[in-house]
Each structure stands twice: as C-alpha cells, then as structure tokens.
Design a protein around this nucleic acid. Structure first.
Lengths: 353, 353
DNA sequence: CTGTTAGCGCGTTCAC
DNA sequence: GTGAACGCGCTAACAG
C-alpha cells in the first residue's frame, strides 16, 4: 500500500498554489471552484488547468467548514448499539426517512451511538445539527453542550426539553386505543410486554420504581396508554425489541398460574415472540390469547397470522426530522410535528375466552 | 423554538474571549482545554471558570479540524439505499463491526450512499478516510478524488484498485466449495440466483453480456465460483437481497420445464425466497430441490429448515476494515486482509433425485 | 470581472 | 509554566 503521494513534494497543493500557477488571485480561484461568483470562462479554464497540473482535488472541506461555519454534517444519535437498533425494521425505516431528506439537501449523516465514553465524542464532531432518536434522558448533558454551541437539536419521541425541537408520536393515545380494542372484545386480564426501560436493558417485572426511574419515554408512554384503559395491567420488561425477547417475556407471562387473556407488546417483534411462546405452550392465538403489537412493520414468517397492531408512520417520522433540521439551519421556526398511529386489526386478537 | 442564544451578545464566545477573561493568553487556554501541555491547576481553574461564565462549550471542532488536519470522521459508503442495504442482516453485522472499531478509537462514522448526485457530496465532506462496502466500480471517479486528497481508502469486497486497501472474502472459492458439495450429492442441473449485477437492479436471466458489464464484484465472483464446478450453470439475476426477490427468482426457475435439481442463491435471504417458491409449487426441499445460501445469517421463520449455506465472518470483516483505517491514518502499512467462509451443511441440500 | 485585505478559531512553535 | 506570534486553507467583503 502506498497511501502517500507519489509526487516528490510532500505537501498537498492548496488553493493559493493553484492560484499562483494560474496567475490569478486566491479569491478568484476560489470563485472558479465554487462557481459562486462571476468568473470569465478563460480564467476558470486557466485555474482548472493549473489545478489539474498540480493534482489539486478542490477546496479542502475542513477549511471550508471553518470559514463558512458549516460542515454539512448532521449527527444522528442512536441509543443502542447499531446491531441492536437496526434489528428492528422500524428504526431502519425511520433512518431511511432521515437519510432521504438530508441527502436531498446535500447534507451528510453522521451516525453516533450513545455508548459510554462516546458521550465525549458526541460533542466533538463538527456537526451543524443533531437528531436524537428515541434517546434516553442520559443525553441531558450533551444537549446542554449543543445548546451552548448553538447547534439545533431535533428529538424524535423524547421528553420535552427546552430548545429541543420535538417530533412526536401518539404513543399514549395509540396504546390506549389498542387497549380499548381489547377491552371491547371483553378482555380484562391484560399484560404488557414493555420495551427496555433502562440503559442496562434489564429484564424483569414492571414495577412502579422502575417506571419512575425509566429513561425510555416511548416505553413509558405506551404503558401509560394501556393503563388508561386497564389501570391494573401488569407486565414484564424485555431486554430489547427482538423476537427472542418477546418469546422470553411471553413465556414468563404465560407459564404462570394467572395467565392473561391478552398481551399488549410494545413492538411488533415482541408481539411475534409472544405468539411463538403461546404456540410453544399450546395456547391458541387468538382463541385463548389475544396479542397486540406496535409499529406495523412487516415480519417474515408470521403467516398465517396477521398481527393486530398500531401502525406508525416511521419513514415520515424520519423525513419530518430531516426537514425540521434543514429548516432550523436556515433560521426558520418550524411548527412542532406530531404523528398518529392507526389501529390495524388482524387476526391475532379476538373475544376474551 | 428559540435556537438563538438568549444572551445579548450575538456572537458565540471563542477561545480568545475566554483567555482574555481569565487573564491568560490564548495558547494557555488552549492547553487548559486539551490537557496536552503543562498548565498549573490554578490557571486551568481560572480558564474553566471563565469558560463557564461565558457559556463557552469548548474548542470549535471545525477549527480543530482545520488546524490539526483531522476531523475524526470516517466515511462509510454504501451502495444501495439505506432501507435496502439494511434489510439484509449481513450488512448490519458488518457495519456494526466497523462502528465498534471506530467508536473505540474515538472516530465517528459518516454514512454515505452512492445515489445519484450524492457522488458530488461524497468527496465534499471533511473525512479522514473512507470505507467502501461492496461498492460498484462507479466509484472510480470518487476514488480518484480521495487519492488526490491523500485520503486512505479501504474497500470491502471490491475489485483491486491501486492505492485502495482491500478487505477480501473468498467469494469465488467458497461458492465453488458449495457447488462441490452439491456436485458430490449428484447434482448436475444447477441454477444460480444472483445478487444484482448493475446499479439499476434489473431482474432477468444471467447473460454473458450482463456479467461482462457487471459492476458487482461480489456477485460476479460468486457466479464464477459456481462455474468452476458447473461450467454450464444458468441463472437469474435478482433485484436485491430480499426474501421476496428470492421468491420471484425461484418461481422463474422452477415454473419452467427444465427445472434444476439444485439452486445456488447468492445470499441467505434469496435462498429463503427460493424455498418459499418451492413450497408454493409443491416442490419438496431437499427431496426434489436442494437450496444453498450464502452469508450464514439468522432468518426468522425458516423452521423446520436449517439452511445449508456458506458462513462468512461479517462482523470481523467490518472490524478489520475499521482497524485498517485506523492503522492507515497512523501512517502504518497494514497487510491486506482476506477472510474465509465456511460451508455449514443444514437440511436444505440432499442427494439429487 | 478581478485583486486586496482580513479574518474564521485554533494549536503550535519558540522564547522567556 | 506562560505569552507572543504565526499559519492551517479558505472565503466574504470591499475596491478597482
């Protein structure tokens, strides 16, 4: 491997060098490249020729960033490890929405995770704005830094914070709607399978203490929505939005004596796991157990089931975040955005037995 | 939303301002922040106090980038749209390997796609190095730019290019090994389901012309490996590594008169689709049709099948790329890396009928 | 249309 | 330990 330049001169050419060779001033050369100002064709040609002969690849983005005060980079902060976050298609859909919008605007997407010492890095990168997705309140400190720097922050499904632009989802209302669907089918003994509540992703029963200390806004809101209808609903916390976790949680709820007649899972993947657990234990769905999901993603191999779930507009959530970032960068004051989920009734919920 | 500073002064504080308030020189203040040089505790405290009172959030990353000639940002170029690329778990695994290694080194990951005009952006971001993953030769132009800039380029599974550090996978050998497995089972009528060959992701039969013009190194190599064993193997090209595409391709191959007794899919997702197609058509797997995959990822809902496939070390591929980038940035000259896949025999391949 | 003049905000020599 | 000066590479103002 020869990464170094093969030319004898060790230093890379800069705009000044190109300008000198072309016999023009640096600012003229700059204009020739950016095309931002009036430059004669002949001058531009001279500059480009000089650039080619010096092997100059164009203005240095780092210097441009400093001078313009913009790097063209938008940070996207994901809570989990990548491999965890991307295992749930809902996150990919959202990210796709973001990427689409940013790409169109010529902005690049910096993928950041909220892991440990990365908290240091998080404020170290030259970003113009930040999108927090489903992030914990752990980020308070980082948000403070962004605010000080004057970097706009957009948060998807997060607690309201001052100077943080919100993209909301009706997690609570939608969950309540789903719960009412079950209620109308006659269910009263309902259990919840919750998304992780803490950064530790610990499993176990949902308790008041854990809920109070929860750092997951989405999980908490969805539980609250269920309790609006079933105040006494109990539940377990999963270690992540995976099918296997739903399986584990489902077993925990269905192997005991006081079996629920309906389980409300906080994601489709969890719901699928719950269905697997029921199959395993010989419990018929929906005859003996109704299962409700959340998200409305397509899960492979679920046939012949068609999951009853709350369909959320994931891609739109992402693109709304992207648009908000762009508008904020342009100095605009966009209106907060709130999305609604829709109950889609499949064949995994039925009358209470 | 109030993104602007609430303080009366419109300009953000800089290091000089902090230094002035603390009554020290700018260089001393710089050292106080970076901790790179000897500064007395009292001086540092003064500087930090001044910073706090001015609401100074620390050195500007953009200026640091320029001064140090490093931005701490590594570009990762993905061929497809995000939503396509991340639909295949193999890509997520690899990305996770990359992110892990970069994160540990304090580097951030800039996600770039190869779509249309993004080609312009691709060289515009302040990156220290680039990782190309499974990218087409379309990138030649960009690679040229990177080379001129002296930006190290690492390519995962790409054609060899000068000054591009390769991370290879034994696509051809592994495919040949898989083909021999089928050959040893007595198969002679074998068909291929290929990954997309062109950027257009067009479906259709594999032809000499298309293969010659192919921009997908991985697809081409895997086909070549099969032909090393079955020189006459025919096949179809899919529009992406998805289950539905495997289904479409499987139908195309199995609905005609001259049915193959074995199908070699170039990814596990495609293989699963092929199995679905067989089920649909009442063709027993592996009794009447053997199916071979590639990747070794876990696919939900495949039971009772256990796919015969070539298991590749995806995460390791990613982390190797990360490590290579880091070493190159440190001026090192790492050895090229090549990974091997392993044939894992499941129950989707059997004797030719 | 082009040149001149100033910085952007910081880190790094050197001296003291 | 600390300060003074310089320059990273570029671009936004103004002149002409």
């Amino acid at each position: 491997m020869n990464t170094e330049a093969s030319s004898p001169s060790a230093t890379r050419p800069n705009l000044a060098a190109v300008a000198a060779l072309a016999g023009v001033s640096a600012s003229t050369a700059s204009l020739a490249f950016s095309g931002a100002g009036p430059v004669s064709e002949t001058t531009r040609a001279k500059v480009l020729a000089a650039a080619k002969s010096l092997n100059y690849a164009g203005p240095d983005p780092r210097a441009q960033s400093l001078r313009r005060g913009r790097s063209g980079i938008i940070g996207v902060v994901i809570e989990d490890r990548l491999r965890d976050a991307f295992r749930d298609p809902i996150n990919i859909a959202m990210l796709d929405g973001i990427a689409d919008e940013l790409g169109t605007a010529g902005l690049a997407l910096l993928l950041l995770t909220e892991t440990g010492e990365a908290g240091a890095d998080i404020s170290l990168a030259p970003m113009d704005a930040v999108i927090l997705v489903g992030c914990s309140t752990q980020l308070d400190r980082s948000v403070t830094v962004f605010r000080q720097r004057g970097i706009p922050v957009v948060a998807i499904e997060a607690e309201r914070m001052p100077d943080v632009f919100p993209i909301d989802l009706d997690n609570r209302d939608a969950s309540a709607r789903g719960a009412r669907h079950l209620s109308s089918l006659g269910h009263t003994n309902v259990a919840i399978v919750s998304l992780p509540l803490e950064e530790s992703h610990a499993r176990g029963p949902i308790t008041r203490e854990r809920e109070a200390a929860s750092s997951s806004y989405t999980a908490t809101q969805r539980s609250l929505g269920v309790r609006d209808v079933f105040p006494a609903a109990r539940g377990v916390v999963s270690a992540g939005s995976f099918i296997e976790e739903g399986l584990i949680a489902g077993r925990a709820l269905l192997e005991r004596g006081d079996k629920p007649t309906a389980i409300i899972a906080q994601s489709d993947l969890l719901a699928v796991g719950v269905i697997r657990a029921a199959e395993e234990l010989g419990i018929g769905v929906p005859a003996q157990l109704s299962v409700l999901g959340f998200d409305g993603v397509h899960v492979e191999g679920l046939a012949p089931y068609e999951l009853t779930t709350l369909v959320q507009p994931a891609v739109e959530k992402g693109s709304a975040a992207g648009r908000a970032v762009i508008e904020l960068l342009e100095g605009g004051h966009p209106e907060p955005v709130a999305f609604e989920s829709e109950l889609r009734v499949g064949n995994t919920t039925g009358p209470a037995s």
